[in-house]
Design a protein around this nucleic acid. Structure first.
Length: 206
DNA sequence: CTTCCGATATACT
DNA sequence: GTATATCGGAAGG
């Protein structure tokens, strides 16, 4: 977790046949392996989270809500399934390609949020398990511009249902590309028709 | 800015 | 069957 603030300011680059996009990280969240009820690794290894249990510096991509990809970097030694969710950043390379991928969203919104960041970088299933510390990798992390001393803030993670108060979200204070904080909202159950009226009153009983 | 809502793969009970 | 580390659009201030 101590690496989380150090990742801010670093640049993620993804090279594809369409070109290269680079994003300077402004917001990340730490997930503490099997000790953290909000972590995908909390209940042990699955097909999805297998990369989290491997070597640090590798990319863990997961698919969620039936439509979004999110990208993490594994950050502890093999066996300790901790990872950093890349939540937001500023596009610093390949703005034109990023614009196409994000359908002309305003520049500061291109990678403002983990699923948006993945779209902007062109991240998909195939990127799961890549080595981001290999400079020859098409998906890699490199040193970026330094973050001003004292500019890193921390607070509760966005949208998580468990461990809601643990301050494991880190961001660059005042940066416009940092995503807005949002509390977890439980899905509303579809309201069941009131049993005393629904059928009888409208004549659908039988 | 805010709230509400639906889309829907994967993991879990 | 239910829940979710999300987003975009619509509507309201």
């Amino acid at each position: 977790m101590t690496v989380a603030p150090r990742l801010l300011g670093a640049v993620i680059e993804h090279q594809t046949e369409d070109g290269i996009v680079g994003v300077r990280l402004t917001e990340v969240e730490a997930y503490h392996g099997e000790l953290d009820p909000a972590s995908h690794a909390f209940r042990g290894r699955t097909k999805r989270n297998a990369v989290m249990f491997g070597e640090p510096g590798f990319v863990y991509v997961y698919f969620t809500y039936g439509m979004h990809y999110c990208m993490n970097l594994v950050c502890e030694r093999a066996g300790i399934a901790s990872a950093l969710l890349l939540r937001a950043g500023e596009v610093v390379e390949g703005a034109e390609l990023a614009d196409e991928r994000r359908r002309g969203a305003p520049h500061r919104e291109l990678a403002r949020g983990p699923a948006r960041l993945a779209v902007t970088l062109g991240i998909g299933r195939d990127d799961n398990g890549r080595d981001a510390c290999d400079p020859a990798s098409p998906l890699r992390v490199r040193a970026g511009s330094p973050v001003a001393p004292g500019a890193v803030k921390s607070g509760p993670r966005v949208g998580v249902a468990a461990a809601v108060d643990v301050p494991w979200r880190f961001w660059i204070d005042g940066d416009p590309t940092v995503s807005p904080y949002r509390k977890h909202v439980p899905k509303r159950r579809p309201a069941n028709p009131a049993p005393d009226r629904a059928a009888g009153a409208q004549g659908f009983s039988s």
